[in-house]
Computed example of a mutant assay.
Amino acid sequence: MRTSAALLTLENLSVRYGEVRAVEAVDLTVGVGEVVSILGANGAGKSSLLRAISGEAGHVDGRVSLRDVDLLKGPRYGVARRGVAHVMEGRRVIPTLSVIDNLLLAANASRRVSRGSVPGALEEMYAYFPRLRERQSQAAGLLSGGEQQMLAIGRALMAKPDLLLLDEPSMGLAPIMIEEIYDILRARDGILGECSVLLAEQSAAVALSVSDRAYVLSRGSVVFEGQASELDAGRVAAAYLQG
Score class of each variant (00 low, 15 high):
V99R: 04
A174W: 03
R133N: 12
Y128V: 04
E201D: 05
R81I: 06
E134F: 00
Q148V: 00
S110D: 03
E89A: 05
G220H: 03
E194D: 14
S14H: 09
V84L: 07
G226D: 14
R81H: 09
F224Y: 15
D167P: 15
A44G: 04
S211G: 10
A159E: 03
L142V: 05
Y128A: 06
M150F: 00
V93E: 02
V210D: 06
E147R: 13
S144Q: 06
S203G: 03
L122M: 12
R115T: 08
Y128N: 07
A41M: 02
Y77T: 04
E123L: 07
L39T: 01
P130L: 00
Q227M: 02
E134Y: 04
V93I: 11
A237V: 14
S196I: 03
A174D: 12
L192P: 08
S14N: 10
A205M: 07
P169F: 08
K46C: 09
S54Y: 06
S54F: 07
V20G: 04
R111S: 15
A238V: 01
T29A: 04
A22Y: 02
A22D: 00
A6G: 00
E24P: 01
L231K: 12
G74F: 02
R2G: 02
R188S: 09
N12E: 03
G220E: 06
G234C: 01
A57Y: 14
L8T: 06
V15F: 11
R76D: 04
K46T: 06
L39C: 02
A139E: 02
V222T: 07
G43L: 00
I184A: 09
Q202C: 06
E194C: 08
E123P: 05
Q202A: 12
Q149C: 08
E134H: 04
S196R: 11
Q202S: 10
A106K: 01
A237M: 11
Y215H: 10
E19L: 13
R111A: 12
P119H: 11
A204D: 05
L143H: 00
I181E: 02
S114E: 14
